[in-house]
């Protein structure tokens, strides 16, 4: 009952916490051309663990903003305007906070749970692996 596959179907979180699951899901998203959503999700987790006193942290926040939010990529399209404005203003004012991407991550996660994750569980990539 606690096989990796049983965990993958439990929740998106369990899938992403498992190395094979995360990589297989990534392969699926690459094919669906929305791998940016997953990379953004992991970037948010990585950012939360960074030391705010490290000058690198501001550069990473800017890099995440530039790569996923400022442009019109799939992540940006799925975020609420207010969420994007909040992040843009935080970066402009250089007010970096560990939780500054949390709201954006939640929004992306909800879309993934409702769409890509459900599609993944019925995809041939997943079924072949099973």
């Amino acid at each position: 009952p606690d096989s990796p596959l049983a965990r993958w179907t439990k929740s998106l979180h369990s899938l992403l916490g498992d190395q094979d699951g995360a990589y297989l899901f990534r392969t699926f998203l690459e094919r669906e051309q929305c791998v940016d959503t997953l990379d953004f999700w992991f970037a948010c987790n990585g950012f939360r663990q960074m030391n705010l006193k490290d000058t690198k942290t501001l550069r990473v926040a800017k890099a995440i903003y530039k790569r996923y939010i400022e442009n019109n990529c799939i992540v940006s399209k799925q975020l609420k305007p207010a969420t994007k404005t909040y992040i843009r203003d935080s970066i402009k004012k250089q007010q970096i906070d560990s939780i500054m991407f949390d709201q954006a991550q939640t929004e992306i996660q909800t879309v993934m749970e409702e769409n890509a994750y459900q599609m993944f569980l019925t995809s041939d990539i997943y079924l072949e692996y099973v």
Binding site: Q19, G46, I64
Partner: peptide
């Protein structure tokens, strides 16, 4: 100095699950 892409990649990799 690391490029922006390297920093971002490092950040993503740090959050990816590791082999148990």
């Amino acid at each position: 100095i690391d490029s922006e892409d390297d920093l971002l990649q490092e950040c993503i990799s740090s959050a990816m699950p590791k082999k148990k």
